[in-house]
């Protein structure tokens, strides 16, 4: 993790100084991860690629604004692509609702449910995993749906078939519990 952070930090500082080759390298090392994030949220490849493209343009322009307080370089970059994807979800709201009607549930699969190929037996559990594991299953599911798929409270309601108030308070309390656990 620190090795990755050191490498990416080196590339990002060079990018901030206008080094195009370093930026190309940064793209090469991180685009797969960032694309997975935007694809998960937007569901459609062309939209996900648009979000990715705009995120990297922003990363190039804002490279000087990264600072340690914002977390790891990859965290900072993931934030940028996520916020861009969230903006796009607003504009492409229709698509999301269409998919609900079509019952395309595949995109809502839970990457931490343990059935997918994402979780190998060799992956050591992080603190976040442990803390997420302490949540009620439905609380965890609501948070996952919102986070990975960019669903609104209303959309989570549609997916879990529970009253809006319940979903809202589950998410809120889930996050509070998560914060207490992570702070320990």
């Amino acid at each position: 993790m620190t090795m990755e952070q050191d490498t990416l930090l080196g590339l990002l500082s060079a990018t901030a100084a206008g080094d195009k080759q370093a930026f190309a390298n940064l793209y090469k090392q991180t685009s797969g991860q960032l694309f997975a994030v935007s694809l998960k949220m937007l569901g459609r490849r062309e939209l996900a690629e648009e979000a990715l493209q705009e995120a990297y343009v922003k990363i190039w322009h804002n490279a000087t604004e990264y600072q340690h307080g914002k977390g790891l370089v990859l965290t900072w970059m993931i934030s940028i692509v996520r916020y861009r994807a969230l903006d796009m979800l607003r504009y492409h709201k229709v698509r999301k609702e269409d998919q609900f009607e079509d019952g395309q549930e595949a995109m809502f699969e839970d990457p931490m449910s343990g059935e997918g190929a994402d979780e190998g037996p060799d992956i050591t559990k992080t603190k976040l995993d442990n803390c997420m594991g302490e949540l009620e299953p439905q609380q965890k599911q609501a948070i996952h749906l919102a986070y990975y798929n960019g669903l609104t409270h209303h959309e989570v309601v549609g997916h879990l078939d529970l009253p809006l108030g319940t979903v809202k308070s589950w998410i809120r309390r889930g996050l509070q519990q998560l914060q207490r656990c992570l702070a320990l």
């Binding site: 685009s31 977390g71 965290t75 993931i78 996520r82 990457p111």
Partner: peptide, 19 residues
Amino acid sequence: WLWEQHLHGMNERLTPVEP
């Protein structure tokens, strides 16, 4: 920023996809 650090760790579970 703190919450970004808390939650973005969830992305480590996603398999990278080449654009």
